[in-house]
């Protein structure tokens, strides 16, 4: 195999006294789809946000496509152009319509001319099945449609890597499928993807590898059959049982779930 597309070495991240990541080592190869699972507060979103430096790591190194993202002298805007990111809350620009959401970044950041940007926007909207929503404003779209536009917006920049931060967690259950279908197609086309998710079916079916995190460390890393189907660690088994059958969960004492709450 050639050099990994994403490489994380000895990554630590603290928010004040709260150590959210306690030494992460991870490699993701070209065209590989890696799903990161784990209880809330396990640091999986923080890890993802460290990859494109939305969070600055406290210690350690991150490489994307051979460039060190954590190098203080790196042109971070240039690196980020190669990394697409999809957020839980979509974060479409509400003052722009769908097409403008896709064209403005291309024109301002990549300096593409108007026609090229419009053409690439149309192609990518078709790719996520929303060509007919080109002139709609985000507020008039369903959550699932907004998330697909967000994916198209990231794709229009021609990224080499896509990061997904719980892309379906803010969606109504019946809208999850459309977004996952787009992601599945993207995976089949050979995109390198790092996906933080709670969708076990998606992880089992699409991922090449599943990484289970808990308490700021990687507990298990392997094929979906092994990590989800036959977990080796008690913590993984415990998490999966609660996830697959939440109604059966017992009331517990405070556990590592509470470690490192990074998001509000």
């Amino acid at each position: 195999m050639t050099r990994p597309e994403i490489e994380v070495r000895g990554l630590h991240k603290s928010f004040g006294d709260n150590e959210v990541l306690r030494g992460i080592d991870l490699e993701i190869g070209q065209g590989e789809v890696v799903c990161v699972i784990g209880p809330s507060g396990s640091g999986k979103s923080t890890l993802l946000r460290c990859v494109n430096l939305l969070e600055e790591p406290t210690k350690g190194q991150v490489f994307v496509g051979g460039t060190e993202v954590t190098d203080p002298d790196v042109d971070i805007d240039a690196v980020r152009r190669r990394i697409g990111m999809v957020f839980q809350q979509f974060n479409l620009f509400p003052h722009l319509n769908v097409t403008e959401n896709l064209t403005l970044p291309q024109r301002r950041v990549l300096r593409r001319d108007k026609e090229t940007a419009a053409k690439i926007a149309a192609e990518n909207l078709a790719r996520v099945g929303l060509a007919e929503k080109a002139d709609a404003y985000p507020s008039s779209l369903s959550g699932g449609q907004q998330q697909r536009v967000a994916i198209a917006r990231a794709l229009a920049m021609g990224p080499e890597v896509m990061l997904f931060d719980e892309p379906t967690s803010a969606l109504d259950p019946e809208l999850v499928g459309d977004v996952l279908a787009v992601m599945r197609r993207l995976a089949r086309e050979g995109m390198t993807m790092m996906v933080v998710t709670h969708e076990m079916t998606f992880a089992r079916e699409v991922a090449d590898r599943v990484v289970f995190m808990d308490g700021g460390v990687i507990v298990e890393d392997g094929s979906p059959e092994r990590v989800i189907g036959d977990p080796q660690h008690e913590r993984t088994r415990h998490f999966l049982s609660r996830l697959l059958d939440p109604a059966m969960a017992e009331v517990e004492e405070e556990t590592s779930d509470q470690v490192g709450k990074s998001e509000p």
Binding site: R80, N91, P105
Partner: peptide, 29 residues
Amino acid sequence: PKGQMEAARSLGFSPAKAMVSIIVPQAFR
């Protein structure tokens, strides 16, 4: 919302460009 700046930055906007084309137009509304 903070996510607007994060989305702009992750698309490769510099802080100044993000401010001018994404944040300020929304602020004025």
